[in-house]
Computed example of a mutant assay.
Amino acid sequence: MPEKTDPTLPDGTIRCFAPAKINLTLHVTGQRNDGYHLLDSLVVFAAVGDRLWLTPGSDLMLEIAGPFAPGVPSDARNLVWQAAELAGWCGHIRLEKHLPHGGGIGGGSADAGAVLRALGVQDGAVSLGADVPVCQFGRAARMLGIGDQIAPAADVMSFFAVLVNPGVHIATPTVFQNLVVKDNPPMPDLPAAGSGDRIWIDWLAAQRNDLEGAARQLAPAIGDVCSALAETDEVLLVRMSGSGSTCFGLYPSMSDAQTAAKALATRHPDWWCVPTVLN
């Protein structure tokens, strides 16, 4: 995976990499009286993501560029802006969007987490959203509670994957509202250190994304994506990430992932299809 934060440039600019967050599992285990849902999720990060440049200055400004810039706010509604304010930092931020927003792979949370990590902020990330603390951590982790409990998962193996987004935006709160059963079983212990590919794939196959059914009802295209991934050669596992609509397939090799991504992109040119490594 590329470095998440590059060295500071001569003019004081900090370059950041905000990798896509992938929920290999997502178990919803309860709901608190205040409405927050309790989660148990194994999170890894992809070698694809957004990029940011933070240049110190007297005023906070946010510039949005990149293929997924349209529709992204450049004011205080943006989590990047809120992260800078949380850090007490001012200046010009250029955000280059390469990840589809509203896709269940971090999006704004990944960007905010990268900013907080680059600026050395230690506390308060969960106030920006449940995914921000794990995105700030930026490495494989088990995410618990309302996203505020992060346990490193250094023994998780790397996976070759294809990420697919059908261009459908789903609001996370709406998915949770559509979830019927909210007290599902938590994850069992992760496979032991040094476990091979087959053990990991079998373990993952026995886990769940409890939001997938609710998301599919809201966006049937998710089912189309999962079916298309399941039909690709050599695929080992197919699942939705986060609250959708991005889904992923796992493969034995990068060559297999690249072949699958090319085939999917040919059949569905309007889908975002990216081969990558998860770790």
Score class of each variant (00 low, 15 high):
Met1Ile: 09
Met1Leu: 15
Pro2Asn: 08
Asp6Met: 14
Thr8Val: 15
Gly12Val: 07
Arg15Cys: 14
Pro19Ile: 14
Val28Pro: 07
Gln31Ile: 13
His37Tyr: 03
His37Asp: 04
Leu38Gly: 05
Leu38Val: 05
Val43Ser: 04
Val43Thr: 10
Val44Gly: 02
Leu54Met: 13
Thr55Cys: 11
Pro56Leu: 12
Asp59Ile: 02
Leu60Lys: 01
Met61Leu: 11
Leu62Glu: 07
Gly66Gln: 04
Gly66Tyr: 01
Phe68Arg: 05
Ala69Cys: 07
Pro70Phe: 03
Val72Thr: 10
Gln82Met: 09
Glu85Thr: 07
Ala87His: 03
Ile93Ser: 04
Gly104Phe: 13
Ile105Thr: 08
Gly108Asn: 06
Gly108Arg: 04
Val115Gln: 05
Val115His: 11
Leu116His: 05
Gly120Ala: 12
Gly120Asp: 04
Val121Pro: 06
Asp123Lys: 13
Ser127Cys: 05
Asp131Asn: 13
Pro133His: 14
Gln136Arg: 15
Arg142His: 12
Ala154Lys: 10
Ala154Cys: 04
Asp155Val: 02
Phe159Ala: 01
Val164Ser: 04
Gly167Pro: 10
Gly167His: 09
His169Asn: 07
Met187Thr: 01
Asp189Asn: 14
Ala193Thr: 11
Gly194Asn: 07
Gly194Lys: 12
Asp197Asn: 03
Asp197Thr: 10
Asp197Phe: 00
Arg198His: 08
Arg198Pro: 00
Ala205Cys: 07
Arg208Cys: 03
Asn209Val: 04
Leu211Pro: 04
Leu211Phe: 04
Gly213Glu: 14
Ala215Leu: 08
Ala215Ser: 12
Ala219Glu: 11
Ala221Arg: 14
Ala221Ile: 02
Val225Asn: 03
Val225Asp: 02
Cys226Ile: 14
Leu229Val: 06
Asp233Gly: 05
Asp233Tyr: 02
Val238Glu: 05
Arg239Gln: 10
Ser243Tyr: 08
Ser243Glu: 11
Ser245Ala: 15
Ser245Ile: 09
Cys247Tyr: 03
Leu250Phe: 01
Pro252His: 13
Ser253Gln: 07
Ala257Gly: 08
Thr259Ala: 14
Pro269Arg: 13
Trp271Tyr: 11
Trp272Gly: 03
Pro275Val: 00
Thr276Arg: 00
Thr276Gly: 04
Val277Thr: 00
